[in-house]
């Protein structure tokens, strides 16, 4: 068992693969991540780097053709990776909730949204879906900034993207979870709506004190919302620090590239301006997976994988350029 570095969540050496016809996709390659209660952590990185897979691993929702082949996920004092499905059911939706990128598609098209929220509340509180539960549904809809009378009987296709995401937020927060995972909650929305949804999330988690993992490929969004940031590259966390440190003093060359590539405010394009291509995860580069794109590549980078080490208090980097500092810090 690894040392415990956060009092809410500790992920160590997490490896996830997907068995496909193309070959085995090594999606997560020993992810390290931790956070404290009530904290807001941003996970950033290019599309396909494993952000969603990390989130789904925490939820215990990696299903075939995927598999967690190594590593631990410790949530509070519960070791999620060794839990059975019938135990995980009592964590999902209750202690950890999740919202998704396409809010309309994330809701069941043939059920009224009120019922879908009621179902969550009923499940978590172990109550029959009746008057009492629906009173709670109304309260949650209002909290999420929706007029309950007008929305409770609507079907998902009758909602705009913003409204649907508000419904998802109402549903996810109805159990007042310790951790809310928001996987690109605004990427599919219009710019003005994006801002409103982020504002709502900000307001509500402030009020309820939930910890949040905000997954995004938009550095601007992460900067605004998060206390800490984890930068992911091809299945690894490559840099982890307070948001201000990431922006003012980035160390990993991938992080530096990302920051240069930050699109102008309001643009939501994928980040693409780092030279080179995202690696194929079926045959990933040896050693540091970033080495084919790195200007500072050394011999050791091609051979061994650089561990995530603390180069300054609270600032972690996985890169051999800083490795010696990290080892010194670890020994002192």
């Amino acid at each position: 068992m690894q040392k415990v570095r956060g009092d809410l969540l500790n992920i160590s050496k997490l490896k996830v693969v997907f068995y496909t016809y193309r070959g085995i996709i090594k999606a997560l390659n020993g992810v390290e991540l931790w956070m404290n209660q009530g904290e807001r952590l941003g996970i950033v990185g290019e599309t396909g780097c494993g952000k969603s897979v990390t989130a789904l691993s925490i939820m215990g929702l990696i299903e075939q053709p995927g598999e967690i082949i190594e590593g631990d996920i410790l949530f509070g004092d519960k070791l999620l990776t060794s839990m059975k499905e019938n135990e995980l059911i009592n964590i999902r939706g209750k202690e950890i909730s999740m919202i998704f990128q396409e809010p309309n598609a994330a809701l069941n098209p043939v059920m009224k949204v009120g019922f879908q929220i009621a179902e969550s509340i009923g499940k978590v509180k172990n109550k029959k879906i009746g008057k009492e539960v629906y009173a709670e549904v109304r309260r949650m809809l209002e909290i999420a900034g929706l007029d309950w009378e007008r929305t409770i009987n609507l079907y998902p296709h009758e909602l705009s993207g913003g409204m649907a995401q508000r419904v998802m937020i109402a549903m996810a927060l109805s159990s007042n979870p310790k951790l809310l995972i928001a996987d690109e909650p605004t990427s599919a929305l219009d710019v003005t709506i994006q801002a409103q949804i982020l504002e709502l999330l900000d307001e509500l988690v402030k009020k309820f004190g939930n910890a949040v993992i905000l997954i995004t490929h938009n550095m601007g969004v992460a900067a605004e919302f998060c206390d800490k940031m984890a930068v992911m590259y091809a299945g690894n966390m490559v840099e982890y620090a307070r948001t201000t440190n990431i922006f003012e003093n980035p160390h990993h060359h991938y992080t530096r590239g990302l920051l240069k590539a930050v699109p102008k405010i309001g643009r939501t394009d994928e980040l693409q301006s780092i030279p080179g291509i995202v690696p194929d995860l079926v045959n990933p580069p040896s050693g540091c997976r970033f080495h084919p794109r790195c200007k500072h590549v050394m011999d050791i980078c091609r051979k061994d994988f650089p561990p995530l080490v603390e180069i300054k208090p609270g600032h972690y980097v996985a890169c051999y350029l800083y490795w010696k500092e990290g080892i010194k810090n670890a020994n002192s």
Partner: peptide, 15 residues
């Protein structure tokens, strides 16, 4: 395979 099935699972509903 749809998204809303993933949502249903993430709510903690039984299989």
């Amino acid at each position: 395979k749809q998204d809303f099935i993933r949502t249903a699972k993430s709510k903690g509903l039984s299989k």
